[in-house]
């Protein structure tokens, strides 16, 4: 593989006594879609801000396209498109004006930016909203506008911090579709998320973070293979009985997790296990066999669920 676009070693960020990012190492390569998966407060956004040259690390090294963000902030930011967790669109301007002025902030010539605005309005499916004020847009539209805005400088790296948090399922799918297109065009994507389905859909490779450290790294498929079984059997015995039943079922599978609302049994053949359970005269109220997901990986690594 070629040289990484982004390379971090022992990257650490402290706010007073609190260590937000604790000595993490990672490399991001050109054209890949790289994810930071973890619960709120895992240090994902902090890591993103350091990459985005808007936060200074406490220690460790990081190089973005061979440069140190601490020394060359504006030059590095010229390569990046940033979609922050919290929208920061210019409320005093219209949709098209938001795109236009953002291009100008990069020092781009007027004519170039005007052409870009039309192209991006089409990309974000916001042509009809061209002259609308930003306030009148729905959450999904604002998000698409923020992504379009981040693309105005034709960045090689697009950084998305929790891109679909707060959106309804339909808006999420529209957004994912737009991100797929960018990926196909060769844009390197950096995504933080606490949604495992989002990570599975969008990321070629990801790091699982918890409390500022990296718990595991790999493709979604390889992480599931390494840290979970092929299938999961979910059983519900009623909230007060899950613990007790879990203890009795423990010997029947490779691994078991007792959550307050359900028991998760890890196995390569869920249906077969379920038959065995009925044969042994256990009677769960509901049962569900499903594929293992990144949620299971996270549970295995940390003993906690992603969304608590």
């Amino acid at each position: 593989m070629s040289n990484p676009l982004i390379s971090a070693r022992g990257l650490t960020k402290k706010f007073g006594d609190f260590t937000a990012v604790n000595g993490i190492d990672f490399d991001v390569f050109k054209g890949e879609s790289f994810g930071f998966l973890g619960p709120n407060g895992a240090g994902k956004s902090t890591a993103m801000r350091i990459i985005g040259a808007t936060s200074q690390r406490t220690s460790g090294t990081i190089s973005i396209l061979g440069k140190d963000p601490e020394l060359h902030g504006p030059q590095i930011r010229a390569h990046l498109g940033v979609v922050p967790q919290q929208d920061n669109l210019d409320m005093q301007l219209s949709v098209a004006e938001n795109l236009y002025i953002y291009g100008r902030y990069f020092g781009l010539p007027r004519k170039f930016v005007k052409g870009k605005v039309d192209e991006l309005l089409a990309f974000a499916q916001l042509e009809e909203k061209r002259d609308a004020k930003v306030e009148t847009l729905s959450g999904g539209m604002k998000r698409r506008l923020t992504i379009a805005r981040a693309l105005v400088s034709e960045p090689e790296i697009l950084m998305l911090d929790e891109p679909t948090t707060g959106l309804d399922p339909q808006a999420r799918h529209i957004l994912w579709d737009r991100l797929f297109r960018l990926k196909e065009q060769g844009v390197t994507l950096l995504i933080t998320t606490h949604f495992m389905d989002e990570a599975e859909q969008l990321c070629d490779r990801l790091i699982v973070m918890d409390k500022g450290t990296i718990m595991a790294e790999g493709s979604p498929a390889s992480l599931i293979k390494d840290y979970a079984t092929k299938e999961v059997l979910e059983l519900r015995f009623g909230s007060d009985r899950n613990q007790e039943m879990g203890a009795k079922l423990r010997t029947m599978c490779d691994r078991i997790e007792e959550l307050p609302d359900r028991v998760l049994m890890y196995t390569d053949d869920g249906e077969a296990l379920l038959e065995k359970i009925y044969a042994a005269d256990f009677h769960p109220k509901t049962s569900l066999v499903r594929r293992s997901s990144l949620e299971d990986v996270f549970l295995r690594l940390t003993g906690r669920t992603l969304i608590e």
Binding site: P74, P84, Y105, F106, R149
Partner: peptide
Amino acid sequence: DRIYHGMLATSMG
């Protein structure tokens, strides 16, 4: 509006 946050994510200082 956090407009400056947006501005400072560009190549401005």
